[in-house]
Amino acid sequence: MDTAPKPQQVRLSTTPSRADLEALKIGDIVYLDGLLYTAREGVYKKVCEEGSDLPLDLPAESAANFHCSPAATVNPDGSFNMGAVTATASFRFSKWIGPWIERSGARIIIGKGGMTSKDYREHFVPNGAIYLTTVGYGTGALLGRGIKQVKAVHWNKELGLAQAMWVIEAENMGPFIVDGDLAGNSLFERENARIAANLDKVYEGTRPAVLRRFGETDDRSDEVIG
């Protein structure tokens, strides 16, 4: 069904060179090596809105930001127990992603479901960053196997374990799929366009609801009946 060339499978450092990223095209399968950190709305608010200092040296230590809340606990002796890790949906972080990439120097954003090609063009391409999506979305156990070590957790007291900034050492962690490449293409948007071509046929024989809703019309003077 898909006529594109077979995707390549590559291992990628979490502190990649520009050439490493230029070699990647949408649909490629990626496995990561090196340090990566979790950051989502809690961390973004703290850094981008409240101006808190970064707790580690970015992007020197890691240029890979994972939109993730791990299934993890901190043991009484301060060690960590991390089982499965899976991404959370990235589109919700659109308002922070530009400032965050500029502040953190991130070159790899990892998450669920990609972001819009508009976000890629406005915030990723100018900063030389790509987007990797997790697979499934539920390959949490496979990704968990790629964790060599949990190095640290920051801000867990203030933000809770789910929103905290976890620093993870990855080894052959994956699979991930390239959704956004350095040219600003989006794999999801390409697939959506192909599927959209079939939708009229699928909807044949269905009927719009008798009572419509705001959202289906933005005209608030509309009665939404019939």
Binding site: S69, V85, T86, T88, G136, G138, A141, L143
Partner: peptide, 11 residues
């Protein structure tokens, strides 16, 4: 997940 006895999904 079954082999490692770890959760199948991180969420």
């Amino acid at each position: 997940a079954k082999q490692d006895r770890r959760a199948m999904c991180g969420d």
